[in-house]
Design a protein around this nucleic acid. Structure first.
Lengths: 177, 177
DNA sequence: CTTACTGTACCGGCTGGACGGTCTTGTCAA
DNA sequence: TTGACAAGACCGTCCAGCCGGTACAGTAAG
């Protein structure tokens, strides 16, 4: 059946994320991804002519997903600020015991430049948050603490307990006002 | 000259860190490290019989250096708390434009388990900080914000400007009390 | 309807190169 | 002479990317 054509790209991207998460970022080979996606190596290379293109695809889909999720949160009633939305979104993201973005390590190994769009996105987000507050110090503390939380999740770190995470989020929301 | 023997291990560890930083974490091969250290591959494998042992060596030396630096700071006059010492130490560490620990990405690619000692160390540090304060919320915010700062440095992120970093550190020291 | 042609989506064996680790052959200090 | 240590050629493995196929949908001429 050829009907499934349109989904191949997304299936492959999801498979890549899965492989990196479960087999480790060092095991993200084209064959592993293809097999996981239920596609042949040739098929993978048809959709992503290069491993670099695959990484790029992962970054782009990650960024657009994040953007969408943040916008959705910010639009929800009851959010007094984008910062609060960002805090809550990150808290939820970090609830998952397994990091959803281990592929980033593979991308860095391939070429650190792949993270440039992510850095740009973060800077953009920070600028946006700056506009809605006059307390830059508190914003910085919140923004970096979220970064720390995300980083710990990415590294699959169990340094913080569930309770501590909740207290942290509560404290951040308080600071955010 | 054989005289250099005793330093070989440290020279190799330093070379490995350099290679990861300058050529990218994906380019940390035994040959590259050996060449950078001014040592042959055989010589490298004599000191570190396995790439895994080399990674382990990097982790251990990183941890012991960090420990030493923190102890030194904490012992300095004028520090009212270990947390302040940790903040200031991290601020200085993150002053360097180039991340000094890119090798961590290579280690993760090799095997995520290599970071276990680092997580344990962090948890230990956190417990220690918990003992000297009764405001757990503030401690969490500070601890995570520092983590965020270190993470940004590790990812070679230029999201924050110099001024912003200084304001952040000042805010953290204020929260730390 | 049928045959021939075209472009798209996908398949999987192959190869060339890189890399980790071994092994043989030094080399130098004692 | 000997033995601790170093050198680097070499081997096996793994993997990215290539390439010659296959299958099928659409189109269009006969």
């Amino acid at each position: 059946m050829r009907v499934r054509r349109a989904n191949s790209r997304e299936k492959i991207l999801a498979a890549a994320a899965d492989v990196a998460r479960e087999a480790g970022p060092g095991s993200l080979s084209l064959e592993a991804v293809a097999s996981r996606a239920g596609v042949s190596k040739g098929g993978l290379l048809y959709n992503f002519p290069t491993k670099a293109k695959l990484m790029q695809g992962l970054v782009e889909s990650y960024l657009s997903d994040f953007q969408k999720a943040l916008e959705a949160r910010a639009a929800e009633a009851g959010h007094e600020s984008v910062l609060s939305a960002y805090i809550k979104l990150s808290a939820d993201d970090c609830e998952q015991p397994k990091p959803s973005a281990s592929w980033m390590f593979s991308a860095i190994a391939e070429d650190p430049e792949f993270l440039t769009p992510i850095k740009a996105f973060k800077r953009q987000l920070f600028e946006r948050l700056k506009e809605e507050t006059d307390d830059l110090g508190s914003l910085l503390v919140c923004f970096l603490a979220i970064e720390g939380m995300r980083s710990m999740n990415l590294f699959d770190s169990d340094v913080l307990s569930q309770d501590e995470r909740e207290l942290l989020v509560a404290s951040l929301l308080k600071i955010a006002g």
